[in-house]
Nucleic acid binder design. Structure first.
Lengths: 221, 221
DNA sequence: CCCAAACTGACAGAACGCTGACAAGCCCTA
DNA sequence: TAGGGCTTGTCAGCGTTCTGTCAGTTTGGG
């Protein structure tokens, strides 16, 4: 049971890590938003403890990106004392719970455990678009019921598009979200990727909006 | 600013209504889940206060149905004291905020106000003029409800005109805003562009002010 | 009636996106 | 460590679509 701790104050992070470890969990610490985003998006954690005041990328932004990418790991955010707006914003951005600072360690532990327990029971519904079904739990994609093997990158692309159904997603947005950063200019990597994905999903669910980007239409049967 | 209160205990409902009214909001009370679902789905409210323990249909179910129907009014749920699972369930079901009972009335007021403010911030983004509707979120334009495919430049032109409704926009202003740099003198690119756009939007929303420029009249009715 | 401004259709060069081929990088196995 | 398979970025060629320009026509104000 790995738990990601995104907290820039080393002492606080250390305390949380110690408490979690004492509870049988495996803590990992990052101290800035960029690392948090990357680690959270690429590794698998049972839960994430996210401080909102992070260097480089702010916590809310990190959370929003995760949710947009389809990450559904339970996230508990640590908010400044009495900052009500932060809490609402956090919940809007997809936080599962929040804890105002300062807090007692036992309380954090209780909530983290509760989240993990819940997440274990929670069945994330598969996302579908036409004949394509994506199951985030097993990372499996099937077309007309037939399991289809996708490469990791293809899967991330499809996942992102499905989580943003009904919206035109530009190539820049895609490359920003699929690759950690330093988007290469003048590269047709995304085009090639889309082409490969289309060939594997025989279904024609990804439309091109020339000059705008790609779109998966909202559920049509 | 109407607010729906779904709460079966008459005294509590009355208290909330009084507090909201004192805050300049217009409260409406329903005392069971069925009415809540119906009223919430058919009337327009700025926010909804939803007790989870309702007769006939349980609050979580009502909330889930609303969200499924696409209702995106902010909802704040009232949960039983210390019932952690209810809160998580509520958020999963689409609640924007929760408040454990018992609560101080000021706190409820603060949260309702925060939600309304937030909702106002994410104002409905589609801009309309006559039968033409432009949705920046999806980069889609529809005329009389029929999606209409525009090229990137046509889209930018329409977008600019709609953002400047009721004002005459000169050709130079347009070419300065549509093209990144040095507008060509002696070119009728803009005229050609306007012509193409007009043909696609069968509607006659772009008027010519000979010698001055173009204008899209302010929405009336 | 005159003339400039605006419109329209045709056209060609530019921009865009798709595809197949290839190669570099990576992981696994022998 | 070498080799094979898989993944993914790059490149070049191709067809499609977009868009500026031109030429000819229409419109509208004075």
């Amino acid at each position: 049971m790995r738990v990601l701790i995104a907290e820039d104050e080393a002492r606080v992070a250390g305390d949380i890590a110690a408490a979690l470890a004492a509870g049988g969990l495996v803590p990992e610490i990052v101290d800035n938003g960029e690392d948090a985003w990357f680690r959270g998006g690429t590794e698998t954690y049972s839960a994430i403890v996210l401080d909102l005041g992070l260097p480089k990328i702010d916590g809310i932004t990190v959370l929003k990106r995760w949710r947009q990418e389809g990450l559904n790991t339970p996230v508990i955010i640590l908010t400044a004392r009495g900052s009500w707006s932060e809490r609402v914003e956090g919940i809007d951005a997809g936080a599962d719970d929040y804890l105002p600072k300062p807090f007692r360690m036992e309380e954090l532990m209780a909530r983290v455990r509760a989240l993990i327990r819940r997440a274990a029971g929670r069945a994330e519904p598969t996302i579908t678009a036409g004949p394509v079904a994506l199951d985030p739990r097993t990372s499996q994609v099937s077309v007309r019921g037939i399991p289809t093997g996708l490469t990791p990158l293809e899967f991330r692309l499809l996942n992102y598009l499905l989580h943003n159904r009904g919206r035109v997603v530009s190539q820049t947005e895609l490359s920003e979200n699929l690759y950690s950063h330093d988007s290469e200019r003048d590269s047709n990597a995304v085009e090639a990727l889309v082409g490969r994905l289309r060939r594997k999903l025989k279904a024609d669910i990804i439309e091109t909006r020339r000059g705008f980007g790609y779109i998966v239409e909202e559920n049509r049967g």
